[in-house]
Design a protein around this nucleic acid. Structure first.
Lengths: 150, 150
DNA sequence: GTCCGAATATAGCCTATGCTACACATCCTG
DNA sequence: CAGGATGTGTAGCATAGGCTATATTCGGAC
């Protein structure tokens, strides 16, 4: 048995278990993404208009309303939201807490991007995807960096 | 008909179509993520070991080998890879091009994160998720920022 | 050359996330 | 207060991306 030779490594690669970990974490972040986005959006709608209608949520997410209904059902299942039939959607305490965390993260990511020279519009758009993959450590570094250049 | 009043806006919200666009783009990026990651990993394996075995791909992605087989089938379907049964996996020209783009993006993201103070380990981990959401505009800004502080 | 273990592939199942089409409620208008 | 527009919910379908369990094939040891 060739005893797993480390390969002719003409080119560095990360250690295998560390790499698998990274991908697993990225996958997990991806699956949390949707609920986070919905929670944030619903919180924004509640704050700005007083109510969150499924049709508004759907329009703003850019999906069919049936899709929004299903995702809201999942939010309810996970204890993040409540809704009575034909009334709007509301967030539980947990839902609000999640939305607050996500929003803070989003703002910081946008600020950081802008600080390094990304146009505001692009920063907003990219932040929508990036925010879900920013670890606490990275977030802290962002805050420190922004602080330092004020 | 109340003519869609802009809502008591106690709190700013993005324009609705722009926001939907952002979410759509984020969703699209998310669905491209997997293929990009696989292409990059396979390219790395080919470069460092000379061959990419499905078992290695699976181990490094942190998934069951059956999952890797399925995703590789999708790569083939999309014209990014080729594979003969029981031989390794190879990338087409398109696959290599994709891998190169992804790799360049990955490196730049890591560099940027490190430059603003993120520990290398965390930068590597977060970049795995972030890289798929960085637009060309943002990428260019990153490059400019790094250039400027050299 | 045969046989066994490792690698590979297939099959079948599950959940998440989209969609369209259809059914039912609500509410505003006249 | 009747009726239609609009909002809401349900049903059924598709694909992506996980998994486990079960073949198959390959390749090296003997």
């Amino acid at each position: 048995m060739p005893e797993k030779q480390p390969a002719p490594s003409s080119h560095d690669m990360p250690q295998e278990p560390a790499q698998a970990d990274r991908f697993c974490r990225a996958r997990q972040a991806r699956s949390a993404t949707l609920l986070e986005d919905y929670a944030e959006l619903i919180a924004d709608l509640l704050a700005s208009g007083g109510e969150a209608r499924t049709v508004d949520v759907a329009r703003r997410m850019g999906v069919a309303h049936a899709t929004a209904v299903k995702t809201i059902a999942r939010l309810k299942r996970e204890g993040l939201a409540t809704a009575l039939p034909y009334r709007g959607v509301f967030l539980t305490a947990a839902g609000h807490a999640l939305a607050d965390r996500v929003r803070a993260r989003h703002r910081l990511v946008v600020e950081l991007l802008v600080a390094v020279g990304v146009p505001v519009e692009d920063a907003e758009a990219d932040a929508e995807g990036i925010e879900h993959h920013v670890s606490d450590s990275t977030l802290a570094a962002f805050a420190g960096f922004l602080q330092g250049r004020k």
